[in-house]
Amino acid sequence: MDTSPLRVAVIIGSTREGRVGDAVGKWFTGRAENREDLVTEVLDLVDFDLPAGLPEHPTSDMKRFARLVDEAEAFVVVTPEYNRSFPASLKQAIDCAYDEWRAKPVGFVSYGYRSQGLYAVEQLRTIFTELHTVTMRDTVAFNLLDGTFARDGTPFDSDGQGQAVTTLLDELAWWGLALREARAARPYVC
């Protein structure tokens, strides 16, 4: 049995100028790094030159993103909610991989106004279900209007958010390790 830490890719889904996604992702990753059972790698979509349309042949950045998805054993998607949905940059990135997502868990950290990004998360759940992933029930969610963010976009620590991170990471670790063992025992088929 493989006892190495679970490899978790934290995907920053917004590429919008002035975003807080990078600060939220850094805050979340800082909490995840306190765990010995996980190792995180941030995949910030601003660091990938993904085309607006899918070309006939994948670009080098499309291949790089798909390779990093393949190497990860679990994912946390940090997403804003724009107009009751998630950003197009995130959908474009998701579509750069297919088989690479299979039989792996996905958790969500969302932010938005009033609804805390939960509309975006619910839409992402249906997409990730189609990709044969397991989405985590519990999320970490922020309301941009309630004063929980510093001027630089970093969330203030609170007991509620800390517990939400712990719950999400506990679920992600359980599913990630269970699915690691399942993939090792038998290839996933659909």
Rank of each mutant, 00 (worst) to 15 (best):
residue 60 S to L: 12
residue 39 V to Q: 15
residue 72 A to G: 06
residue 56 E to N: 10
residue 76 V to D: 00
residue 37 D to R: 03
residue 58 P to R: 13
residue 43 L to Q: 10
residue 71 E to G: 10
residue 87 P to N: 12
residue 52 A to H: 07
residue 96 C to R: 12
residue 40 T to R: 00
residue 64 R to F: 02
residue 63 K to V: 09
residue 88 A to Q: 09
residue 75 F to K: 09
residue 33 E to P: 01
residue 29 T to C: 09
residue 30 G to T: 07
residue 81 E to G: 01
residue 66 A to P: 00
residue 45 L to Y: 08
residue 10 V to T: 05
residue 76 V to L: 05
residue 22 D to M: 06
residue 75 F to W: 05
residue 77 V to I: 15
residue 11 I to N: 05
residue 63 K to Q: 14
residue 89 S to D: 09
residue 46 V to H: 11
residue 59 T to K: 03
residue 47 D to T: 10
residue 56 E to R: 12
residue 21 G to I: 02
residue 36 E to K: 15
residue 81 E to T: 05
residue 48 F to D: 02
residue 79 T to E: 04
residue 85 S to H: 11
residue 65 F to I: 01
residue 42 V to N: 08
residue 27 W to D: 06
residue 71 E to S: 12
residue 20 V to Q: 12
residue 78 V to A: 07
residue 14 S to E: 03
residue 60 S to G: 01
residue 91 K to C: 01
residue 16 R to V: 01
residue 75 F to Y: 14
residue 42 V to K: 04
residue 46 V to M: 11
residue 21 G to W: 01
residue 8 V to I: 13
residue 8 V to T: 12
residue 63 K to E: 13
residue 44 D to A: 14
residue 82 Y to Q: 07
residue 47 D to K: 15
residue 16 R to M: 04
residue 32 A to R: 13
residue 78 V to K: 01
residue 91 K to P: 01
residue 10 V to C: 00
residue 94 I to Y: 11
residue 81 E to L: 03
residue 43 L to C: 06
residue 62 M to S: 10
residue 18 G to Q: 12
residue 55 P to A: 11
residue 91 K to V: 10
residue 89 S to N: 06
